[in-house]
Amino acid sequence: MRSRTSDIAAGLATLAVAGIFQAQSGDLEGVSLLFPRMLIIFMTIGGVFIFVSGLLTPRARVDEAPCELPPEEPVVVKRVATIALASIVYVGIIPVLGFYPASVLFLFCMAMILSDSSVTTAKRALSSAIFTVALCLAVWLGFALLLGVPTPQSMFF
């Protein structure tokens, strides 16, 4: 992201967070408000500073910037959105299906979707299935059996 855009976005995000916390601090008083209030004020000043400095950055300077900065790596937005959405769904279904069934579903589907598309579907399905079983087994052995770490309870079992 270019310096100008990132400054404006960072400034707005900071101001938004400060605003949300300010709105929530209504009933607080005394020592419990002291520290958050200091931070909210600091973030508001800093947010305005970054936002304004982003707005004031001349476009001509923006064009010069890429020479000084390392080239940004290309990002495949679709893949980022896919894993982000799938992770939300995964965490959402854990309390319903249970940790292991949800993990099997998540791992297999994601391995199929995100794996190298040049490989045949059958090969991808096989490698995804092996990976899913191996990881779930390793997690069960390491966490549940050896360390006795509990897994999230499901609605059904």
């Binding site: 894993i83 992770s87 995964y90 965490v91 854990i94 309390p95 940790f99 993990s103 998540f106 791992l107 994601m110 391995a111 995100l114 794996s115 190298d116 990976f131 990881l135 997690v139 966490f143 770490v149 509990p150 897994t151 999230p152």
Partner: peptide, 22 residues
């Protein structure tokens, strides 16, 4: 791909293990 989705699963169980809280 395998490492990334594996990290998600390990992160979930690792985070849950701290206070047994979703």
């Amino acid at each position: 791909t395998f490492v990334a989705i594996g990290i998600v699963v390990l992160s979930v169980i690792g985070a849950y293990a701290i206070r047994n809280s979703m």
